[in-house]
Design a protein around this nucleic acid. Structure first.
Lengths: 227, 227
DNA sequence: TGTACATCAGTGAACGCGCGTTCACTGATGTAC
DNA sequence: TGTACATCAGTGAACGCGCGTTCACTGATGTAC
């Protein structure tokens, strides 16, 4: 139950040569942006470094002046994503925002939120999903999951007498991960195709929310938000 | 609601040069087996054809005499997997076997079953998961999902008055896919690592089953199996 | 049953392509006095 | 403010490695008469 913290795993310095001028800082960001855009269309392995450099209106040499190797780009992208995701979660799951809310309201908004994030960054999410076997990526995915999951859990456990599941801690954790694991492929993969289920995002969100709540065993509270 | 059938998508012939002698048939199978074994340890892209050939005690030339290209091996492996999975599902979901069973019994056994299959063929499942974006693989995954999902659905819908979810058809479909989507990464990925959730297979199965039933809204029947 | 020929199966060294990475060089920015 | 030098940033052609694929050749199996 200790709040998980996002350790800076030796962080960027492992993959990125730090820029010392404003100019190269911008190049770095252009390269990252270019890479992320290209990931919307292809897998990471299908994108040659030359293409990333070209798209960023930079050059291969400049790229290697910033990144120790090709993989470093993906790692940097993932780190940036995690930082942003944490920040967003911090804001969104701020207890004050939810003082009078019921569990279903919280869960429902969280699910919508997950859908939106995954949809916005489909390409990156897809590539990351295909690489969870990479220990570094995996560790980052898990750390983010723990971090956000823990915040959500705290919010939900305050309302624990609305939860029927015999082990509310486990239940919150499992339910959150389940939601994420289901949404990731349903949303991110469906860019290519009707998708695994012929449902639109909003319909998927409804079912995932329903599932989440049913699993917790929430009998809808007549509004008793604070413990 | 039409029973989905596994179309033979032009099938093997597209990737495999059919063997004409017993000998080459055996070579083909040795190659497939070797490839599947190697997938337990690495991703498909990390396994060079030379290694597959070597492990099969064959040669690169022999390999290319059977498969049109490297990808063909993965496709052939996937087709074999689907054939076997269908056959197993046919046997397991045979209505006669379940005449007196409740929904929870059916679901619980199905989940256990999924866990076992995924666990047994971790390597292949992992590689396939990383490749759902390939249209051919995706189509096969979906076809298998439809096929098995439909069989399960039929079994469950016979007991539809035990289901509270407003749309039982949709619910069965969604619940099955959700179970699969959650189990695949939880089980197949955890070979590498403590896993996303620090749960053992049996514990995961319990939660997935609970979630499945809760989502359907099953109020446990006092045994009224036939409609 | 034997012989000749055709097709199938297998071998593994060699080829070649793609792509990540390097490197010699030019230009820009910062710093010291 | 100006000048000289050092470091940073950027360029893109060339390199080289890995790996999928081919191909010339040997051996095995099948078939026709």
């Amino acid at each position: 139950m200790k709040p998980p913290s996002i350790r800076e795993t030796g962080s960027s310095l492992q993959w990125v040569h730090p820029p010392r001028q404003e100019r190269s800082q911008q190049t770095l960001e252009r390269l990252l942006d270019a890479a992320e855009v290209l990931l919307e269309e292809k897998g990471f392995d299908e994108v040659p470094v030359t293409e990333i450099a070209r798209r960023a209106e930079s050059s291969v040499g400049a790229l290697y002046a910033r990144f120790v190797d090709k993989d470093a780009i993906l790692h940097a992208l993932h780190e940036r994503f995690c930082r942003e995701a944490c920040a967003t979660a911090d804001a969104a799951l701020e207890p004050a925002r939810w003082e009078d809310a019921s569990i279903s309201e919280i869960v429902s908004e969280c699910v919508d939120f997950l859908v939106r994030i995954i949809r916005e960054r489909e390409g990156l999410c897809r590539t990351l999903a295909a690489r969870v076997f990479d220990p570094q990526i995996r560790e980052r995915v898990e750390a983010l999951g723990r971090y956000v999951g823990h915040k959500l859990q705290q919010l939900l456990l305050v309302r624990r007498d609305a939860i029927t599941h015999p082990n509310p801690e486990l239940a919150c954790d499992f339910a959150f991960r389940q939601a994420y694991l289901v949404l990731d492929p349903l949303v991110a993969r469906s860019g290519f195709d009707p998708g695994l289920l012929p449902l639109r995002d909003s319909e998927i969100a409804v079912e995932v929310t329903r599932s989440f709540l049913a699993y917790l065993g929430v009998h809808e509270p007549t509004d008793r938000s604070q413990a």
